[in-house]
Design a protein around this nucleic acid. Structure first.
Length: 603
RNA sequence: GGGGGCGUAGCUCAAUUGGUUAGAGUCCCAGAUUGUCGAUCUGGUUGUUGCGGGUUCGAGUCCCGUCGCUCCCGCCA
């Protein structure tokens, strides 16, 4: 008989009746009846009830076992009587009556409880992550991630993609996020950088003729965390394809994503082709470049209606270049909400940076609201028509500079959707946001800058760059969005050195600067580069959506906290003088702020 | 770098407008208990109310500072 087990804790069934079995695992729960003891024994595969009878020599030892101790039990598999069957357990028709019991590892009192659904404080959970990961939900999340990654590989391979590895120690890139730097011992004063993404390598692989690249790629960015953004490192399903149009990229991603979401969740999921929204349309209708389409509220522009109106606050702002966005809330009887509901929303709009929030409420035959008396009949009719407002509805109005109007109205739309519970339940809604502007005007620096990826191909190519107002040039740049979460950005790349030089020139870079900064890429483009494009959906975010977690740390086995510390390992940590000396580094620490030392748990 | 929220027993939380000895569940400890499966029952231990200062006759509660966690803005081509 095997030293530790003949069966896992999720394996034994009624058909094993009479068999002698050996199982090993963690003491999950104990029910001590004094002269009879039940132990729920748990391993990765499930839970099996072990019965310890009082005549056994180890009965007292078993009674004293602490939860999460590891034991090996050998005994007879017996069927349970009908009234003691536990239907919520896969092994609930049987139990193992213990003949021998070996304690493999004694557990001290736990800092966190493994049984039960309750989350402990997050710093403790991170410090004792190995305990936290024993909990059912976390164990499930991490496992789902594993299965998802395997599934992504299978699907990509089936689409004819080859998986590549690219360097982790590479060089700092001039554009983009802050790099993590690694000092070189051999080259004093020089540094490697961890890749923010394998962007340039995958483009070079296309130039090498590999045609279809993918990688479950680690990416490193030294930027601050968010609930959906883990600090330090994250993973992307990195994809690049040669001789493709935007539609070819979409077709692959739609198949992979819809396949994965269909297989890994019971929720309703959009079938390909996913809806496409122009960036401008997304900003106007949803006030966001990552709209949550589960929210039925669709906004519209009503700037023209307020221009020259008696509502002077808006009319004057419109003359000064502001736009007015209408946020219609229709068909849910929002007109019956108390005054406080509207007051709170006005307050919310101000906190979001708005100057205020105007609104109209259709109660029965009359229109009410603070601005109603300033709107003449013709204008009111236009509003009613454009917003499809009926009795019981309300429309909110935000007036601000276009960029702020979008953001503020978008925040209000999100809040209304959530507070009024308008979101479609148990559904994944996907869309592509396309036609991003190539450039935008930086108000602070008073100049034209790249709005997203400088390596994207401008729509219309060279003639668009030379013939159009730069702010009107669109890029072959696209995002895929699910339930308000940006899953991924991608682009058809600019593979022409001349167009690239021109594109950078518009953003204020001289030819010489570009030739110097991106020499190897330009040189590669000059030696035969296929038209190519790609995308890189975030693996962590996919798992987060599928596991229905609202925080990305819940689906990462060993995440860092928001301040980019690993509380379990104690990273980042001080290093020895000798290590620094070898790397030719002398510390120049900020004054007063003493370095916080992290203490790893004594385990 | 900036703003919001939170911080009470090992853990999850409560504590009236600032009022008497800071409570409950869980965990832990002891005892009882032969069919439980979140076992049950009895009893018990556990507190610098994050830390420091202030206001007050009196502070878990109010004020200031600080530390920690978290959410957001900036940032993330």
């Amino acid at each position: 008989m095997h030293l530790y087990r003949t069966h896992t804790c999720g394996e034994l069934r009624k058909s094993d009746d009479g068999r002698t079995a050996r199982v090993s695992g963690w003491v999950y729960r104990k029910r001590d009846h004094g002269s009879l003891l039940f132990i729920d024994l748990r391993d990765h595969y499930g839970v099996t009830q072990v019965v310890v009878r009082p005549d056994r020599s180890f009965f007292e030892e078993a009674q004293k076992l602490k939860p999460e101790s590891v034991i090996t039990v050998t005994g007879r598999v017996e069927p349970r009587t009908p009234d003691t069957v536990n239907s919520s357990l896969a092994t609930g028709e049987i139990e193992v009556v213990a003949d021998t019991l070996v304690v493999e590892s004694v557990a001290d009192t736990l800092p966190l409880q493994v049984a039960g659904e309750e989350d402990g404080p997050e710093d403790l959970r991170l410090r004792y992550r190995f305990l936290d990961l024993r909990r059912e939900r976390m164990h499930k999340n991490v496992l789902m991630r594993s299965r998802l990654v395997a599934d992504l590989r299978r699907r990509m391979t089936a689409h004819g993609f080859a998986e590549f590895q690219t360097p982790i120690l590479t060089c700092s890139s001039p554009e983009g996020a802050r790099d993590y730097l690694v000092p070189s011992r051999v080259h004093p004063g020089k540094f490697y950088a961890l890749p923010q993404a394998p962007q340039l390598f995958k483009q070079l692989l296309m130039i090498s003729g590999f045609d279809r690249y993918f990688q479950i790629a680690p990416c490193f960015r030294d930027e601050d965390a968010r609930a959906d953004r883990s600090p330090g490192e994250f993973y992307q399903l990195d994809i690049e394809m040669s001789f493709v149009t935007q539609d070819d990229v979409f077709a692959v991603v739609e198949d992979v994503i819809s396949g994965v979401f269909g297989d890994f969740s019971d929720w309703t999921c959009d079938k390909p082709p996913f809806r496409r929204l122009a960036w401008r349309e997304a900003m106007e209708k949803y006030g966001s470049d990552k709209p949550d389409l589960r929210n039925p509220i669709v906004m519209c522009d009503v700037t023209d209606i307020f221009r020259g109106s008696e509502f002077k606050a808006f009319a004057a702002a419109v003359d000064g270049g502001a736009t007015v966005r209408a946020i219609p809330v229709t068909g849910v009887g929002v007109a019956d909400k108390p005054r406080s509901f509207y007051d709170k929303l006005v307050e919310f709009a101000k906190e979001a940076g708005g100057k205020g929030l105007a609104y109209l409420v259709w109660q029965g035959d009359s229109v009410k609201g603070p601005i109603a008396k300033y709107i003449d009949q013709a204008r009111m009719a236009s509003i009613v028509e454009r917003c499809a407002a009926r009795a019981g509805d309300a429309v909110f109005f935000v007036c601000d500079k276009p960029k702020d109007a979008s953001r503020i109205s978008g925040d209000i739309r999100t809040k209304l959707g959530r507070d009024l519970e308008l979101l479609e339940p148990n559904t994944y809604r996907f869309c592509w946001v396309v036609d991003f502007p190539m450039y935008e005007f930086d108000e602070e620096e008073r100049r034209v800058v790249f709005s997203h990826n400088p390596f994207s191909m401008p729509q219309g190519g060279m003639s668009a760059l030379t013939g159009k107002d730069p702010l009107d040039v669109l890029a072959y740049q696209y995002d895929i969005v699910c339930n308000g979460v940006e899953l991924s950005s991608g682009a058809i790349r600019n593979h022409s050195p001349e167009i690239m030089l021109k594109a950078f020139e518009i953003a204020g870079y001289t030819r010489e600067e570009v030739e110097e900064k991106f020499s190897f890429l330009l040189n590669a483009f000059r030696l035969g580069a296929p038209p190519h494009g790609g995308i890189a959906p975030g693996v962590d975010r996919m798992v987060m959506l599928l596991a229905q977690e609202s925080n990305i740390r819940e689906i990462i086995a060993f995440p860092m906290n928001q301040r980019a510390q690993d509380l379990m390992m104690g990273a980042p940590s001080a290093v020895s003088e000798r290590q620094l000396r070898e790397l030719h580094i002398r510390l120049n620490l900020p004054k007063e702020k003493a370095a916080t030392t992290l203490v790893a748990p004594k385990v």
